[in-house]
Design a protein around this nucleic acid. Sequence first.
DNA 1: TTTTAAAGTGTTATTTTTACACAATAATAT
DNA 2: ATATTATTGTGTAAAAATAACACTTTAAAA
Lengths: 252, 252
Amino acid sequence: MKNESVLTEEIQVKSSVINDTKKLVDSYPRVPITVDCVVFGFDENELKVLLIRSDLEIYKDKWSLLGDFADVAGEAEDLDAAAYRILKHRTGMDDVFLEQVKTFGHPNRHPGGRVITIAYCSLLNIKHHQLKVMDNELHWHSVQGLGDELAFDHKIIIDECYDWLKKRILEHPLGFNLLPEKFSLRELQNLYESILNVKMDRRNFRKKFFAMDFLIDTGELEGDVPHRPGKLYQFNFQKYNHSKKKWNGIDF
Amino acid sequence: MKNESVLTEEIQVKSSVINDTKKLVDSYPRVPITVDCVVFGFDENELKVLLIRSDLEIYKDKWSLLGDFADVAGEAEDLDAAAYRILKHRTGMDDVFLEQVKTFGHPNRHPGGRVITIAYCSLLNIKHHQLKVMDNELHWHSVQGLGDELAFDHKIIIDECYDWLKKRILEHPLGFNLLPEKFSLRELQNLYESILNVKMDRRNFRKKFFAMDFLIDTGELEGDVPHRPGKLYQFNFQKYNHSKKKWNGIDF
DNA sequence: TTTTAAAGTGTTATTTTTACACAATAATAT
DNA sequence: ATATTATTGTGTAAAAATAACACTTTAAAA
């Protein structure tokens, strides 16, 4: 067993080591970090992205992603947490998933000086998520044909996130987040066609999704259509989450 | 045409706007950014990762990734550039690709205070890249069974990069970076089997790679084997780079 | 009752994937 | 020279996944 003086010495050594480590880190250059949320939504058969009127005077006629600085000063906030906080603050939403996509750090990407931003991506059903009433500065923009009305390097960020989304939706059932709880197969197909920007065969599409065995027939029919209504289905998240094979890896 | 006073006014407005923007950015909390390079290599039929003895006293018996702070103070250095600089500095190598994988920012990931790190990944042929002679602190570790001899959160980072690599190598011909210029199909198959950690059928494997049409038969045979030698092939990067279909999306 | 527009449904051909076994060859040992 | 050894090189058939394709059914609206 060690005696007390040895213990004390060890502790002193350790704390001086930590001090050295802190000093080293203190010597590193520092930079502000922001998080930008690329929130995709689907409405009227079109993929949209949620933008906010830039709050910088310099970009006054431009739109920007939902972003803000990450609270890296306190020891409290994880990057993921920062993303959720910022999304909640900007839109009031707190029940969506967010995934980190990529970090952008071009030296001149921000007119106010060097700022590094981490892009997070989300996908949700526009109708299901009421935006904060106050914020009429928020707007859903069509993803197709998004041009130079964007501030910063946000066009580049959105493009990369859109590419990420197209890959992601083929290997994970994200698409169901975009639909009403109960949806027709036509709606589901429209969704995939819009996001992937392809046309698919109706019969083969149905075959594939039914083969996955994660769709529940609700027995209900869609209303408000001037023709034969389609059956409404639900996605069985329960079953999906506990299933081994997860997802067939759709590949159109 | 505008007269001079209007022009002057405009410029003044603009510069005050920029000043405001700078002030805003100045008010953001700042954090040091590091870049960590996860360099995978292949040798003796095993996937390895290049590690360096930690230069922090607190981690003196641990190994860590090749990392350093990014020069975010100057306006000069892009994140990608930082990754290349750091890799070059630590190993002397400057002819490998690096791709950004993910940013890690857990508040307590660094004992010296809050540091956010961006992980970059690379893949190379160990024999082709001599490490700096000075640096006997560098060591190729087997990726399998990497344990708690790692500093910081580097085990987590390596795990995520390894997952990334497994996906990446199926959709991109990275594997050829790991082989000698001329290689036998057995070597190629060993490579894929080691990285993906699966066994594959020899005939089907050959079929798949020949179908891709990017392998050139050099006419040579491998030497130094105590049995029938295999033919040596080269990967046709030229043809690959100009080809439309790129890669069959191998899927074992 | 008719019209309309989309829903629902099955089969066949094609392609891709998997499974599987034996002859040919160069090097080495005898 | 010959036999031995270890690995290369090769083809085919079954199974699974994908792609192509057209007519009948249905509810709502006219």
